[in-house]
Write a protein that binds this DNA or RNA. Structure first.
Lengths: 169, 169
DNA sequence: TCATTTCCCATGATACACCATTAGTTATCG
DNA sequence: CGATAACTAATGGTGTATCATGGGAAATGA
């Protein structure tokens, strides 16, 4: 399964329309079971994450994967109910139009404080939509963490460590 | 699995096109699950490493290996989130064209300060793309380190150490 | 009705597919 | 065995499809 990769900063017009970056569309198409050549893919935007100011886009198939994970939690457990709430009530089904654009409703745009520009960020099985400056701040924070006492080397070496010691989580 | 070996300095034209060295293409083909004779391989370029000024090319299968390693880190851990960000947002899916070339987008070329030439450097399961002068500087720096109090011998002796002590290197 | 949303068409820039050339290497054949 | 043909690799150039974006007409709905 292809992954969402890369960054793209696109304009949001007065009607709330934004182009989905073409490479992301390819991934969405692949993840939409109903999609065939000539059609436009549909997908899901989740806006429920509280501690990061961005929206998250899931292809239909990867949204299914997440739903499956949730359904493995005990029925009626507090955790499951909250996740169900965040993932289901705080999300919308989105249709890509003929020109590769979507419309983000005002209420949801406000969530991420998106006004005139949107930064699309690949995250593998999902992508994020940020207000560009917020994203850059977030990225600077990551850079700073990485530059602190060889944190980058440390992080990369975690890979080797885990390679030999743990199973897949 | 065949490995990326050797160096090659190729021209980058005004449109950002560069030839992938033919031997590297052979490795990329082998690492692309969808590739068959007659087709051109696809792969991934990662530009997220902070403390080295080069781009890194991964075959699809070795990129998968890296993704798998990351997914063994605890979900939502700081380390994992940072790695996911670096590996996914700071990377692009690349398609080799009929003539064995790729296009490196301007933004990414700037990362490595590549203008008119690119140095391809084999690194086993991945390869690096350098601005040729930067690469030569890096190589000189390595030579100097190696000449300091038998560092070279020390380094090679690490191999013996690991051979006897760990399972996987 | 008036505002908002949805659909359709237009456009400039860019990216991509396609064709051409050169040089070096290997293969073929008289 | 030497000459030439066939191939592959790297590189240059060109036309066309695609992408991101803007604007307006039709449809919707409060």
């Amino acid at each position: 399964m292809r992954r969402f990769r890369g960054e793209a900063e696109n304009k949001v017009d007065a009607k709330g329309r934004v182009s989905i970056p073409a490479p992301f569309r390819r991934v969405l198409e692949e993840g939409d079971p109903d999609w065939t050549a000539g059609l436009n893919p549909n997908f899901v935007i989740v806006y429920g994450r509280r501690n990061s100011k961005c929206l998250e886009g899931y292809s239909l198939s990867s949204m299914n994967d997440v739903d499956d994970l949730v359904s493995r939690l005990p029925r009626y457990s507090k955790e499951r109910e909250i996740l169900e709430r965040l993932l289901n009530s705080q999300s919308i089904y989105v249709q890509v139009d003929e020109n590769g654009r979507i419309v983000i409703p005002p209420r949801i745009r406000e969530r991420a404080q998106i006004t005139s520009k949107a930064m699309f960020v690949g995250m593998g099985d999902k992508f994020q939509i940020w207000e560009p400056d917020s994203y850059r701040h977030d990225m600077v924070a990551i850079d700073q963490r990485l530059s602190e006492n060889n944190f980058e080397d440390e992080i990369y070496s975690l890979l080797d460590y885990n390679e030999s010691n743990s199973e897949k989580i």
